[in-house]
Design a protein around this nucleic acid. Structure first.
Lengths: 225, 225
DNA sequence: TGAATAGTGTCTGTTAGACACTATGGA
DNA sequence: TCCATAGTGTCTAACAGACACTATTCA
């Protein structure tokens, strides 16, 4: 008796920022027609390669990009007899946050699509835009009381760039004063001593204190509700 | 091609209060030996009976108790090649909150066990005590910023009884002043006008405002950290 | 009337947010 | 030197928590 993984899939919603906009990793589906159809990185559990479902999720990402997610979390498992025309199906949904450093190698057929739900609904096959919506809901909620924003930024970043993450994810952001107070408290960030130049007054560059795990604050921002 | 549910199970951790103590619903496992072995309400997806995984979870509960959960939520899906000696297995874990009203009919073999992790580790088969731990972690976290406590109480209850829920779940509780301020704000509760007598000064009895969904507050209690 | 629990008034601490202010480097 | 952006000082609002106080019923 072994796990029949025929209609069980692990789907990953990977988020990344490009030019201050949120994007989602997708791969092209083979079609006869010329119009593009896309799907999320997804696949079955491989009982030989994978030791756990997390492994399966990581493996789906690795098929499309050379980047390792700085953060990954299971969202939900959806299962019913509606999603797939063949009958009952199960999907374990993850979301992953990818940093904005350079040096990504994308597999042919993979592409970062702008995370605009209306457009994605047309571009994505199956119920994948719904899965993205659920992952996005989780991200939008958790960003407001955790250090998640840093996982979408480069290794070193300014506090304004954290503000930018909020704008990209929520379309609104807390005031810089609040972001400053929150992120400079405790040992969350380390001042690298370097400056980001090019703007007018240069901004201090911070990096994540590796000793500290993903930080959970005990209050939500109110201005982003 | 159909969903082989051989090694996929849906496990439910149902919580209920008895005498101010948290309990977990379990069912006896048939054993030759005289010592009791227990397991969580769990079972396979029935592609005919169940329209969705939530249905499966509800069905597992219904097998053991006549009570319907006031609240149920998926915790996580665990899958690896370690949990089950037969190889790869998948478990979708839910937790459910059951009110403290009377009138429960338990199926023979079902029993509410005190939610003491050390004792449960000895009583429960498989990795079920670990599943309970994960469900309990989620409950302990969410109780601190939501209206979840009310789902463990009778239809009408006093504010002191909310305090009791915190004590049962966390072994510590916020001051009554804070509970009062939080739960009497907004339209969360309705004063029934009735009083709970028997103690010295009678306490006002409240009920949940059915118009309001599960309430999420924007701060954690600090005293229960 | 006293014990016990219910419930209030009010002060402090913390943190989000508003807003005016100062600081600094590039053009 | 001007300007855009970085960053600070400080006040307010909201709410958790501490704590002293009052209120109400039962024994």
């Amino acid at each position: 008796m072994s796990l029949n993984t025929a209609l069980i899939s692990v789907d990953v919603v990977a988020f990344r920022l490009f030019n201050g906009k949120l994007h989602v990793l997708a791969q092209r589906i083979q079609t006869d027609r010329n119009d593009s159809q896309w799907m999320l990185p997804a696949g079955k559990i491989d009982p030989v390669k994978d030791q756990s479902v997390d492994d399966t999720a990581y493996r789906q990402l690795e098929r499309l990009t050379s980047k390792k997610p700085g953060y990954m979390e299971q969202v939900v498992t959806l299962g019913d007899n509606q999603r797939d025309s063949r009958g009952w199906s199960l999907t374990i949904v993850y979301y992953a946050l990818i940093d904005s450093n350079d040096g990504e190698q994308l597999t042919p057929g993979a592409k970062w699509l702008p995370a605009d739900i209306e457009t994605l609904q047309e571009q994505l096959a199956y119920d994948h835009s719904r899965l993205i919506q659920q992952a996005l809901d989780r991200l939008r909620s958790k960003i407001q009381y955790s250090s998640l924003p840093v996982y979408l930024l480069p290794d070193t970043f300014t506090l304004s760039e954290i503000h930018g993450v909020f704008s990209a994810v929520l379309d609104k952001a807390p005031p810089m004063r609040s972001i400053r107070n929150r992120f400079l408290q405790g040992d969350l960030l380390i001042d690298t001593g370097k400056l980001k130049r090019g703007s007018n007054r240069p901004a201090a560059l911070y990096k994540v204190n590796q000793n500290s795990e993903t930080w959970l604050f005990d209050r939500l921002y109110i201005s982003t509700r």
